[in-house]
Design a protein around this nucleic acid. Structure first.
Length: 295
DNA sequence: GATTAATGCTAAA
DNA sequence: TTAGCCTTAATCT
């Protein structure tokens, strides 16, 4: 999935192109027909992300709650007004991989025929958005949205009071391996398998180190580095954890192969110590790490 | 063309 | 603990 940085970009995109607009809401696939009817015709008033959760608030205190899960994605399209309103480069798709139109010459002729299982379609005067493949898509009350937030840990992309302290305390109070704690959305919201592997490498932490065995300062630095990486991800629209020295000569951005230290690099030599990058299954997910650097 | 794996979580069993 | 979501890209045959 899109980790927290993608969902933050989605919230930004909805804010840019739909806030203040009355939206026609439908469910071409049918599975969200009742929820769509509840939202249809209402004005989008706010758009927020917390971790991997997206909340679209409407003018009658109903909230569209979306979690993309493993492969959910939003598609966008619209006229020049719509495209011009987007502050993040007007991607056509935000989800597991962002897609940009190669040219802006196509005439806008309204929303296309729904292709595949479109769970929700939002249509404004100037554009549209389609949701497919999401794990969660629900019309809920403000109170219910608050309950979802309450069970999430601090999000490094938000300026919440005591966020860093809450993370450090959460880590130090548990004996669970740090690699598992980073994936626990109650401990820190928005980190997925890529950021987990990369930030542990960058901090030189053994993935199996129990949370309560970390130094408080190490846990704090882990939070700080995660926050930096995720903010970069919001800016870039992708996860890049290596510095320019590891990219092709003169490249402004790395190729996919050069963007990470360990993620999906099992068996390849570590970029720092040349030991083979290891892969292990941990709680049903693949964990990539360098046995040389992370001890 | 078919199969697999994927940045994740929920609900059923 | 497992199926499910029902997409996409990469890898297979």
């Amino acid at each position: 999935m899109p980790e927290g940085h993608s969902v933050r970009r989605l919230a930004q995109q909805f804010g840019d192109v739909f806030t203040g607009e009355a939206l026609s809401v439908s469910s071409p696939q049918g599975r969200f027909a009742a929820g769509a009817a509840l939202l249809d015709g209402h004005i989008l008033t706010d758009s927020r992300a917390h971790g991997k959760h997206l909340f679209l608030h409407f003018d009658h205190a109903v909230v569209l709650h979306v979690h993309l899960g493993l492969y959910g994605a939003w598609d966008f399209g619209g006229d020049a007004t719509f495209l011009g309103a987007s502050s993040i480069g007007a991607p056509r798709k935000i989800g597991e991989r962002e897609v940009f139109d190669d040219d802006g010459t196509a005439e806008y002729a309204g929303p296309p025929e729904p292709r595949g299982a479109v769970r929700v379609r939002l249509v404004s005067a100037h554009g549209w958005a389609d949701l497919r493949g999401a794990t969660t898509c629900a019309a809920i009350t403000e109170a219910e949205a608050g309950a979802v937030l309450a069970r999430l840990g601090p999000d490094p992309l938000r300026n919440q009071p005591e966020a860093r302290t809450r993370f450090v305390t959460g880590v130090l109070s548990r004996k669970t391996p740090i690699a598992a704690l980073l994936m626990d959305q109650k401990v820190i919201a928005g980190v997925g398998n890529v950021y987990r592997a990369e930030v542990l490498f960058r901090q030189g932490l053994d993935p199996w180190l129990p949370g309560n065995a970390l130094q408080g300062s190490a846990a704090g630095l882990l939070w700080d580095d995660t926050a930096v990486l995720m903010a970069d991800g919001v800016r870039d629209g992708r996860i890049i954890t290596t510095p320019a020295g590891y990219w092709a000569e003169g490249a402004a951005l790395p190729s996919g192969d050069d963007a990470h230290y360990v993620y999906k690099r099992e068996g390849l030599p570590c970029r720092v110590c040349a030991a083979p990058v290891a892969i292990t299954e941990l709680a049903g997910r693949k964990l990539y790490w360098c046995p040389g650097c992370q001890q």
